[in-house]
Structure formats: structure tokens, C-alpha cells
Amino acid sequence: MARVVLTGLTHRYPSTVTTTIDDLNLDVPNGELLVILGGTGSGKTTLLRLISGMETPTAGTIAFDGEDVTKLSAPQRHVVMAFENYALYPHMTVAENMAFALLLYGETHEGAMERVRAVASRMGLQDLLDATPDELTGTQRHTVAMARAAVRRPAVFLLDEPMGRLPHDTREETTAALADLQRTIGITAIVATRDTQLALDIADRIAVLENGRITRLGTPDELRDFL
């Protein structure tokens, strides 16, 4: 868990004059679920990539719990980023997929499986731990990918269009499970989406992003009539 503070954050691609993130300031308290709401080209994915360390800002700083991490590499930031693409290791079971990163970073097998079972239960995956990805539906694979990211209990959990591939009739249940998991574990989570209803359903606060700038910031109740 971490408090995330962005100060004067700016990003421009060297080969263009386009500014994707423009002097952005944002304070995300420890344990908050913040939704970055914006359309295509608003800069929301770039913002997540900056926080994760996958992109380098042109100006400004990124701090986790008061520590300036702007110049740290992605692996040094203890951030997990889950993309819309939910690719899983096809030769591994659900449990093995979820435990893989934990084991890679030195967790014991017993400890890893304890965390896997706890998260799987929260996400409704407890009966699928022995299945392989080709035995799962698209919705189940997507849910496993999110659970695989969450089981690592990162300082900051970043999700880019997490429900983008789900059919509408399963989004509500999966959305509720994701929000419940985030609040139970207490992870600071930042979710980027163009889905207004998703933002209203899960967010503690919503930041509306337009042309690299935050134009509105508030709780779902405060912003409901403006979205």
C-alpha cells in the first residue's frame, strides 16, 4: 500500500510536440480506489505507465509514501499493472499462474498457495484452481489475470480498462468482486477506463482526464450529475 502523489507531472513524446500529460497534480491516499475516467487519447494509459515506471516523465515528480520514485525503474517501484490483455501462461493451472510471481520473488510454496487460495475465494475462482487457461471461459481468464496481479499485494495496483473484454452481463459481478478484493487487501488502486458506469460503481473518487489534464475530481456522488 502507498500514498501516490503526482506533482507537476508532464509527458511529451520526443518525436512529437504532443503533450500527453500536462502539468498534472494528484494526491491518491493510501488504500484508495481511484478511477481515471477518460476517452481515447485523454492520456489515461500514459498516466498509468508513468506511475508504473514504464514511461519517463518530461517534467514533474512521482512519490510513493513521500519517497521520490520518479527515477526508479518499474521493478523497483513494487507496482503491478494489469492490462486489458489478460494473457496467461497456457501450460500452467490457474493456481500456478497466480502463484508464479510470488515464487519468483522468493515466497515459499506454502505461503504463495495460502495467498492464492484467499484471493481466489474473493474472486469466485476457488473451484478453478486446477484448471488450465484453455478450460476457462473468456470471462474466467480475465478474472484470473486480475487475481494474478492482486495476489502479489503491490504497493500500487494499476488497471487499464479492466472490464474491457468482459460481456456486459458478467461485468457487474466481476466489478463487485474486484472492488471487494481491493478494499479487503487494502491496496492503493488506480483504474483507467472510459466506462462511466464502472467508475460510478467502484470508485472512492473519480478523476476525469481530458487532454492530459484533470478537469474534475470527486466522489461518485459528487460527480454523478456531471458524467
Rank of each mutant, 00 (worst) to 15 (best):
A145H: 01
T193Y: 10
V151N: 03
I202V: 15
D180T: 13
I62F: 05
R194Y: 04
M113A: 00
N30R: 15
R165I: 05
V17R: 15
S42I: 06
D201M: 09
T196W: 00
M113D: 14
P75H: 09
G218H: 09
N30W: 05
V144A: 10
D27G: 02
T139M: 07
Y105P: 00
A112F: 05
Q140R: 06
L223I: 12
K71R: 15
V79K: 01
L26A: 02
V79A: 04
L6D: 05
L37P: 05
Q182W: 03
G164T: 11
D225Y: 05
T143D: 00
N25A: 00
D22I: 11
D180A: 14
T19F: 00
T20I: 12
L34E: 03
T188V: 12
Q140K: 07
N211M: 09
D160S: 08
E222W: 09
L223R: 07
S121G: 10
T132R: 15
T139S: 15
L178I: 15
T143L: 10
A199Y: 07
V116E: 06
R153M: 08
A101T: 11
A63T: 14
P29H: 01
T61F: 06
T143C: 04
P57F: 14
R117H: 12
E173Y: 04
M54E: 14
L159I: 05
A131Y: 14
G53D: 09
T175Q: 13
G66D: 04
E114R: 15
T7R: 15
D65Y: 06
G186V: 10
A63W: 01
V4R: 02
A176C: 01
I206M: 11
E210V: 14
L34Y: 06
Q197C: 00
P75L: 08
E210W: 01
Q140P: 08
M113N: 14
T20Y: 02
G111P: 06
L33V: 15
T193L: 06
M54C: 03
T16R: 06
G106P: 07
A177I: 02
V5L: 07
V191K: 01
L128E: 08
P220L: 03
I36K: 09
D180V: 03
I21N: 04
E135F: 01
D65R: 10
R3H: 13
N85D: 14
Y89W: 13
V151G: 04
F64T: 11
D127L: 04
A87Q: 08
L198Y: 09
S42E: 07
L129Q: 07
T19W: 03
E67R: 14
E161T: 11
L103G: 12
I202H: 06
D195E: 12
T56N: 09
L88C: 02
I187K: 00
E135M: 12
M92P: 03
T18C: 00
V208E: 08
A2P: 11
I214C: 11
G31V: 10
